[in-house]
Structures are given as structure tokens and as C-alpha cells.
Design a protein around this nucleic acid. Structure first.
Lengths: 195, 195, 195, 195
DNA sequence: AGGTAACCGAGACGGTACGTCCCGTCTTCCA
DNA sequence: TGGAAGACGGGACGTACCGTCTCGGTTACCT
């Protein structure tokens, strides 16, 4: 997928590799997966993998991304807070499902692989952020959010706690967390009491 | 530091190993560091490392933790927001300094090593969280924060965005980010405008 | 048994070590036996072994030698050939018994350990050779062997074929081999036929 | 040379390995030689050695065998005894040359490695024995040896004393030994004197 | 229609690090 | 001071993968 340009590329091999990668995410898991194992399971020469991907992380990222359905778009019922809650509940569900483990591994791998980091960001994080941002903008236009609110930071504040728990393992992300985050953000209680 | 119990342990070797680990964090970096390199640089047999630590990540964690000064306590000038800002500025400084890179690597490594995750949490994250929490509680007692505010979530909301940027590489954590987070949290603008 | 001189030596430890060596000859076998295993099984510090023996081969040699009864002396019925046959049968029995395996291992070890070679020779081979030689000399005095016969070489010729088979594994040493050796040596058929 | 079947094998690597083995026989010697040293000197990965040989002894055996010229055949001047003497002198020369040391080491190693023992026997011992046997049979046909003589045992009796001295270190094999062996075997003096 | 150039499978190759085993020395504490 | 215990520096083990390479074979295009 990177260096040699060709439509002579074998679609059969490509799919077999992605398929094998997905399967190996399940069983030995991302960390214990090897290029050799992918090649063997896909019935493919190692060279064929190295020809199109730079690392196992790149293969897995492609594999995960390919199998992901176009993803439902951000809900819009007219009530921003309800919509945010619904969407964040969905994210929590995803994060706590076993199928999410390899995503976490990819984020970990990306810490020492800038190119991978960029691709993870572009493929996985950015689209969700953009949608959330768009929903907030619409809400602002609807008057459900202050004109002066810092929407960019709002997006970060909404999702960051989920990733925080996911990656620091302080606790699993959860629905109550979502509720508390929304409460804090929408009530602004982090301010002095009025006497 | 885990399996064999003994006070016959060589303090000389222990320190040489931790020292070597720190040095190797700088030069080849955590990812390219190997147990063999640590042993060689420390002038120590590999077995001596494996006897006391289960992985290079464990060694590095101990090394980083040992070299860390008792850590300045949370500032308390009487103004919570100012104190939070000061402390978070400090965290931003730390995170963007080259010396922080290995911490990031440890968090990455912890994604596939639950025991390491626990130790990272206990040694690095938990104490900071506790201090922040304590400061917020004092602020609440002082009436600078609403009685009903969810302080636990507040701590998460304050720090999560920093880790979010750090680990997802959306942008480097920064002072302006801190300012915007504090603004959003203290003004509660994520609410409908009053007409 | 070599360097430090002392009667403070612990007889208990010495016997435990030799005993352990014998037992380990049986189970993991000489080749797979280690100093550490001997120490552990003997309930002895490694240092205690190294203090008195230079190598595991030395320990095993002592152990084997100590457990060997003073050894029956060469038979003397008046008939040299019969006596030789009897004695050589006994050697064949010994060589083909499982208990002989470590002796073979010692001879092998001696190939790269001159000091061990000397001790193996002195303790194991030389006494038997001397006895055989003495019996042949008596036979010569009795007129059962030619005055001109080269008795030193005769001893070599009698025993060499047994060691030859033992060490080159062309075939196991056997009674028929003994018979055929004796026949060839006593009939001198390796000469032209008389017409 | 055993497990994977393939003509994809690198002849370059094979030769480099055998060459390195020969050289290391000279300098650190068989006992102190390591697989790692062979690999390093041959400029080869360790795996490449392990892929084709089970042990360093196997490598050395192949190396020695490959470098050995097809070997001069048994002399045949018409005089068996002279021919035997000539051939055995040659064996003595070989055995007492420094180049023979690794053969001795192989025989030692074979004591705890049945497969190696078989290969040493087949490659080194058996051919020589067969040639000697053939020469004796021809002598028997020529009437230079009794019809009833036990030729198989004769071969053993001729060579065994040389190996006996070589391996038990009673004395170095020598020409005088050869002479005395031949004398004893051809005169049959190990019999009662005729009055 | 034949030639040729690319991808493909297979897996050997030179290498590096792994985690383990044992070496022979040392250190510590006990009797 | 000898012995038990076992940690220590060291070095080789045999294995696992890395990423590159060579080797036929099989397409698919290009004359």
C-alpha cells in the first residue's frame, strides 16, 4: 500500500493477509502476533506483506479499518446533550468490547511510530472528532450552546476522559462516567457558590 | 524486585542497572533498548536483571521512579483556579520535555502488561490525582467550588485532555490548552444561552 | 582432595557429594550432570565441591572408585588361558552392564583433561594391567608361555579389542570376542600355512 | 544436514561453516569451540548451522571428512605383513599428528551421542576396516595366511592396540608398538614352549 | 504467439535479542 | 574456619523473528 505501484497486485493475497491479521488479533493478540504468523496463516510469502505494508501495526490498522462498517453518523434528535450522551454511550460500548483491544494496542504502538500515529489519528480519531464538532456547531447555531463556548476544547473534554481511563487503566470507561462528564460540563459547578 | 526474597541482594548491581536504564532511555530510547544492552552497560549478568525484574519496562519504571525527587506538592495560594493552572502548566512542561518520552513509552507498554499498568498507575498517576483531589476538596471547603461538584470527575476532566493529546498525538499538550480547559470548566458555557 | 589441606574437612559433606554424584550418573547421566545439581542433591554449597575437586569428572571418578570393592584378584587355576578367559569374561560383563556407562564417559572426558586421564589410568586401568601382566609372567615362568613372548604387548592385545569395541561402537564387547581373541593369539594362525 | 529437505541450501554458507569449524579445531580446539564462534567466523547466522547440523560435533565431523582426500588405498606389494606394517605406520603417523586431535575429540563426543557414534563409525572407521579386511582376504587367498584364521578378529587385533593407547593414554601409539603387535600375531608365541 | 516483467508462494539467509542454564567466584551468615 | 546458601559477572545455549534475498511458477501485458 506504500511503495510499488501496481494494479498487478493480488487482491486474493491482500484479503488473505487482512483476514489473517484480524484473526490473529483475537488469538495471540496484537503484541504476540508476528509477521511470520500472518504470512503463514494467510498462505502468503513474507515478502508480499513487506511489499505493501511497513509493519504489522500498519497491516492491523488496515485490517481493522476495512472491516469497520462506514459507521453510523452522529445522532441528531434536536437535543444536543441527549445526542452527546447517546454517542458517548456508544463509544463506551465499543471501548469495553473485546474487539476494541487491538485499537488500544495500535495507539500504544503509535507512541513509537509517528507515521502510524498519523494514520491512526486520520482514520480513527479525526472523523469522530469532526462529527462531534459538527454536531456541537449545529447546537450552537440552534442556541443550545453559548455563542462563546470553545467547541474545539469541548470535544476534547468530552472524549478525553474516556481515553484517559482506557489508556491509564484507572477504571474502565463507563456510562456513569459519561453522565458525570456531561453534568460537570453543562452545569459548570466548578465555580464558586453564589452566596 | 519480585520473585526471590533476599537481603543478600547487591545494592551495587541494583543501582548500576537502574542507572544504565536511565541512560539508555536517552540514547537508543525505550523501544530500542534491550535487556542485553542494560546488562552490558551496567556491567552485570542478564540473569541478575531477570532475577529482580520481569521486563525492561519494569526496570525503566523503577529507574524513572527512583530518580524522581519526592515531587513538589500541589501549590496552595488560596486561589484554586490559579493553583490548578500553575500545576497543570507544570504537567505540560513535563510532558513536552524530552525526559517525558519514556513515561509515554511505559504507558504504551502497559497496554499489554496488566501488572505494569498497575504499577504505573500506583507510582505515577495515583499520587498526582490524589493531590489534585485534595486541593479541590480544600477549595470546596473554602467555598471556591460548589458543594455539589463532582470532584472525582473534575480531576479526570482536568488531566484527561493532556493525556489525550499526549497519547493520540492530536496536538502537543500546551498552556493554551490548559487555559481553555479551565475556562470551559469554570464558566460552564456548554449550556443554553439565556435570552 | 586437591588444594587446601585440612582435617577440618567435613566427612559428611564429602560422602554426600560422592553419593549424589553416583545417583546422578544414573539419572541424568554423566553428560547432563552439573556441579549445581550435585551440590543441590548433596545439600551442599557449590563452593564445598570446588574446594576439593576441580571438575565434575574428578568427583565422579572418586565416587566410582570409592564404591568399587577392592576387586577380586586375577584368577590362578594353573591354566593361563582359562584364567585369562575367565578374567576377560568378567571384564566383558562389567563393560556391558549399565553401571559401566559412567566409566566410558570418564574416558571420554579424559580426552580433553590430561590430569583426569592420568588419574583414570592410575586408578582404573593400571591395576588391572599389572595383575594381568603378573599372571602372564607367572605363566611364562611355568612354561605355559614362550620365553620370548612380548608380555607387555600381550596384555595390550588382550584388552585392547574390548576397549576398541566399547569406544568405537563397532559392536558390544562379548564373550565370543574374547574366545576369538584368545584363539588367534594362542594359535598364531596369522601366518602362512605350512604346505 | 538432516531435517529440512532442500536444494535451496546455500553452498556458500555450507562451505564457510565447514571451513570455520576446521580453523577453530586448530585454535581454541574442539572442546572450547562454540556454535556461536563457528557462526561468527563463518559470517553466518546460528540458525543456519542449526538448520543443517544437530551439534558442533556433527559440523566438525563433516568438516574433517570433507577435507580428507579420498585416502590412499591399502598397499599391496604381495607381502601382507609388510603391507600391514606400512599401513599401520601410516595410521600411527596420523594419530600422533596434531591434526588428529579433533578425531579423538569426536570419538569422545560420540560416547554420549549415538547418532554421532554411528556417523563416526561409518565415515571414519568402517572404510579403513573394510580395506584391511580385504587385504587380509587376498592374503588368505594367496596362502600367506592360514585358511582357518579369523580375519575379522585379526583386523580388530591389529588396530585395537593403537586406539587403546590413543584413548587410554597409556602411551602414544608408535611404530615399535606396530612391530611388536605384528610379531606377536604372526609368531603365536603366546603358546606353551615346546620342550 | 512468444517474450518478458511483475507479483506471488516458499523459505533460506545474516543477524539480533530473547530468556535460560551453568560456570566458577564471591559474600554472608551459621556452627 | 569450614560449610550451607545462593547472588553475582559472564558466556553459550537453542529459539524466535526480523527484514532481505533468491528461487521457480504463474499471470498479464506488449510487442
Amino acid at each position: 500500500m506504500t511503495p510499488p505501484n501496481s494494479d498487478r497486485r493480488s487482491e486474493r493475497a491482500r484479503q488473505a493477509i487482512l483476514r489473517a491479521a484480524i484473526e490473529l488479533c483475537r488469538d495471540p493478540g496484537f503484541t504476540d502476533m508476528t509477521m511470520e504468523a500472518i504470512a503463514k496463516r494467510a498462505g502468503v510469502g513474507k515478502q508480499t506483506i513487506y511489499r505493501w505494508w511497513p509493519s504489522k501495526a500498519a497491516v492491523v490498522l488496515d485490517a481493522l479499518h476495512e472491516q469497520t462498517q462506514p459507521s453510523a453518523t452522529f445522532p441528531d434528535t434536536g437535543d444536543v446533550v441527549a445526542d452527546l450522551r447517546a454517542q458517548m454511550y456508544a463509544v463506551v460500548s465499543a471501548m469495553t468490547s473485546p474487539a476494541f483491544v487491538p485499537y488500544t494496542a495500535l495507539i500504544a504502538a503509535a507512541q513509537s511510530d509517528p507515521e502510524l500515529a498519523r494514520r491512526v489519528l486520520d482514520l480513527i480519531v479525526a472523523p469522530r472528532v469532526a462529527e462531534c464538532r459538527a454536531r456541537l456547531e449545529k447546537a450552537q447555531a440552534d442556541g443550545q450552546v453559548h455563542d462563546g463556548a470553545d467547541l474545539g476544547m469541548a470535544v476534547e473534554l468530552l472524549y478525553a476522559p474516556l481515553y484517559y481511563r482506557l489508556l491509564l487503566h484507572t477504571a474502565p470507561p463507563g456510562r456513569d462516567q459519561v453522565d458525570r462528564v456531561l453534568t460537570l460540563l453543562t452545569t459548570g459547578l466548578l465555580t464558586p457558590q453564589r452566596p
